[in-house]
Amino acid sequence: MRVTQGCFSFLPDLTDADIRTQVQYCIDKGWAVNIEFTDDPHPRNTYWEMWSLPAFDVKDAAPIMLELDACRKVHGGRKYIRLSGFDSTHGWESVRISFLVGRPQEEPGFILTRNEGGGQAIQYTLQARPLPGASA
């Protein structure tokens, strides 16, 4: 399966030149760009591991692309990697864009567990299947 989280998962995988355009968009908006990775793509898994601190005060996408390269060297093809742009403006103070820039070579998907309660009601539990070769 293909996890379709993030802004651009229905497009063909982004090239580095593509990613650069979106990173520059964030920088020009004054947002801090953050690189995160995880082996648990559950949609409620909010806190992916941060690769480094969010990049505040940069003017150009180059340093983020450098960090992304470094992150890929370690996790590329094995974990999910995403970029996000954080807006500290009052009233937002949250993520304004987020998109995947790396996936494991094989995406094992999720297990949906149905627990029958009383009557016809079902409690659903969603769990990501472990990624091959990934630990923690």
């Binding site: 989280q5 949609p43 409620r44 998907g109």
Partner: peptide, 22 residues
């Protein structure tokens, strides 16, 4: 209404599992 809610939530849960999205 209860029928609708039950079947709709089955659909939602299955779609979440198929996409990894809420």
């Amino acid at each position: 209404w209860r029928d609708r809610f039950l079947y709709c939530m089955e659909a939602v849960a299955k779609a979440e599992a198929a996409t990894g999205e809420t």
